[in-house]
Design a protein around this nucleic acid. Sequence first.
DNA 1: ATGATATGTCAGCATGACTGACCAGTTCGG
DNA 2: CCGAACTGGTCAGTCATGCTGACATATCAT
Lengths: 177, 177
Amino acid sequence: MAKAPSAAENGSAEKNAAAKWAVRYSNMQELLFFAYRDFTAGPDAILSDYGFGRAHHRVLHFVHRWPGLTVADLLEILGITKQSLARVLKQLIDAGHIEQKTNVRDRRQRELYLTKEGESLAAALSAPQWRLIEEALQAAGTEHYDAIVAFLRRMIDEDGRLAIGALEEHRRRPEGD
Amino acid sequence: MAKAPSAAENGSAEKNAAAKWAVRYSNMQELLFFAYRDFTAGPDAILSDYGFGRAHHRVLHFVHRWPGLTVADLLEILGITKQSLARVLKQLIDAGHIEQKTNVRDRRQRELYLTKEGESLAAALSAPQWRLIEEALQAAGTEHYDAIVAFLRRMIDEDGRLAIGALEEHRRRPEGD
DNA sequence: ATGATATGTCAGCATGACTGACCAGTTCGG
DNA sequence: CCGAACTGGTCAGTCATGCTGACATATCAT
């Protein structure tokens, strides 16, 4: 089914190599499932105290990372519909965690910023995840950081990588004021 | 907030190192989010043709990996309630992808097995994920496989690692017949 | 016989996706 | 200047997948 990286193309040695990689790939599938689940468990617990969910965390995270983000930007990053976003965004604004400012150049656009409360909530949510990442990097060996990033990055599809790239570019060229 | 691995404890050099790791951790958060989302996109597309969802995929995956698994085992692995599992499990059984056999030693227990159709669906679902993992490993350098596994494994909480360990032990000691 | 265990099921709830439709304000091109 | 296109907000309804609580049935263990 899946061909092993650098598998020898000779008879039963090839078969063994293929089987070895099949097991590794299955392991990887499971590891990703469990790791992602436990990675989100920490913030989820905090969020439930606020009546928020994972979706709120994502919005807080990306607004924190790219202050002044527009609603359209956020929709593209998250890959959800505006109706889905509107629900959580409205709750975050009502709760005073996010502020909207009208873009002076194009008054249709709303730039999103975290309030002080929003910043501190975002920080609190990130804390358990940072701790996990730090521990995991230690376990893996910090010298493998680049390889791990390369691995995860390559798992993101073309569009996603482009979306991230576009944002980084947008950030370099503030253009707002 | 988070202390950088092996950060020097001396003044502004320390500050720079901390800032560097803060950015890396934020990147990691995003990479995990995007990677997991795109990782599941492939199977999700296939599943929707069958009227199934991600939950069905998980069940198929784990029954494939540990044939003869009991319902209680599955509940522990997935960390969901039996009512939630029952819904998807029933659909998979009705659709002829999973078979139940009564354990001869303890007739209360139901051992779960994939049918031929179940096996082939499970294989089809895994194919896009294996392809992604293979590409990602190539991009990261296959020599970093162990480090990546160590990283992901460390992100799983104690209970999860124990549950995986328990299953591996269960597999070594078939005990059923 | 009795209590514990493994499984199944009913009924209802919440979250966070989705679709489709529509409105208001703003910008831009001809 | 006007109409088309764009940005954002909203209403109404659906679906998948988690949850709780209650209860039934078969089986096992003491």
